[in-house]
């Protein structure tokens, strides 16, 4: 029996496989395919203070080994979440994490405060890295001063586990990870999508209505892995790695590079049950290699 569970401070995870925000809905969409309580956690899609309709269609373009999206944080806002979503997700027997987004620091603070009051939500993922909104989002994640301010202010009102989701669209992601650590984040998750674009040569127009969008899928994995490795060496808080993980081998690369947990995103679009396959694959790998605890391989290549 391999030990897969671990803690981030006082928050217990039954295993290190989490579903990434924006790719797993509110979890309920996956109940036909597997028992989501088997996962270490699920990060719900981004929630904002107000209702957001998101960006115009088309919002998606397939690219080599990946896809671009420009959804733009479509969601029904925190009121709807508290009333209609929370009662459902609070029944899940896994860590339910809310991804929090806003246009202004005050938005983040208000949201974090309200979610702090929700007993069954043990953590938030502070999304300072969405590339698909005009205001807020990635601005906070690409300017060190803004990043520091929003994390600091949220930390004041949020007493549970604070995960900061970092943007890869910066020169030095380590700088932002260190800011998160200094301002009291409990962990960091990386990477959000890489800013990219595609052009439809047949129509001679940008493929996305917003022209640019966020690139995800296996195409971004080497970049994500490099950043996770850099950050894991630089910070003491746990690093949650994500970006293009399609199978357990990909996931193990992230653990070996220093990730304490991983999130699976785009892969769930292609195989809604992939998270469970990845979990089993990790367990098999540890057994085959003769490890008894996932923690033995975290950052292994750095030893």
């Amino acid at each position: 029996m391999v030990k897969l569970d671990f803690n981030i401070n006082d928050l217990h995870f039954k295993n290190p496989v989490l579903a990434a925000s924006g790719t797993f809905g509110y979890g309920v969409e996956f109940r036909d395919f597997f028992d989501i309580s088997q996962l270490g956690g699920i990060v719900l899609k981004a929630t904002t203070l107000e209702v957001r309709e998101g960006n115009p269609y088309p919002r998606m373009a397939e690219t080599p080994a990946g896809m671009l999206n420009s959804v733009g944080l479509q969601n029904k806002g925190i009121d709807h979440f508290e009333k209609n979503i929370y009662p459902v997700v609070s029944e899940f027997n896994t860590n339910v994490i809310v991804n929090v987004n806003g246009s202004y620091v005050e938005d983040y603070v208000t949201l974090a405060g309200r979610i702090n009051a929700l007993e069954k939500i043990p953590a938030i993922e502070l999304n300072i890295s969405c590339p698909n909104v005009k205001k807020g989002g990635m601005i906070f994640g690409t300017d060190p001063k803004s990043a520091r301010e929003v994390i600091r202010e949220v930390r004041k009102v949020y007493s549970k586990q604070l995960i900061v989701k970092l943007s890869p669209n910066v020169t030095d992601i380590v700088e932002f990870a260190l800011i998160a650590e200094e301002e009291g984040a409990d962990s960091v998750s990386l990477i959000n999508t890489l800013l990219g674009m595609a052009v439809d040569v047949k129509r001679m127009k940008p493929s996305l209505a917003t022209v640019t969008g966020g690139l995800s899928g296996p195409a971004v994995k080497p970049v994500a892995l490099r950043m996770v490795w850099q950050v894991a060496k630089a910070v003491r808080i746990p690093v949650i790695g994500l970006g293009g993980i399609m199978n357990s081998r990909d996931a193990i690369e992230f653990f070996l590079a220093g990730a304490s947990a991983i999130q699976v995103g785009t892969a769930s679009f292609i195989n809604p049950a992939v998270t469970i396959d990845i979990l089993k694959g990790i367990e098999n790998y540890l057994n085959e290699k003769g490890f008894s605890d996932i923690r033995e391989i975290i950052g292994y290549i750095n030893n």
């Binding site: 809905g25 969409e29 899609k45 269609y57 919002r59 998606m60 373009a61 959804v71 479509q74 679009f269």
Partner: peptide, 17 residues
């Protein structure tokens, strides 16, 4: 017949107004 990624209502790419 909108462009879609997931088909199960989670990617929010195939939206129609």
């Amino acid at each position: 017949e909108n462009l879609m990624a997931c088909g199960i209502g989670v990617c929010l790419c195939c939206t129609v107004e």
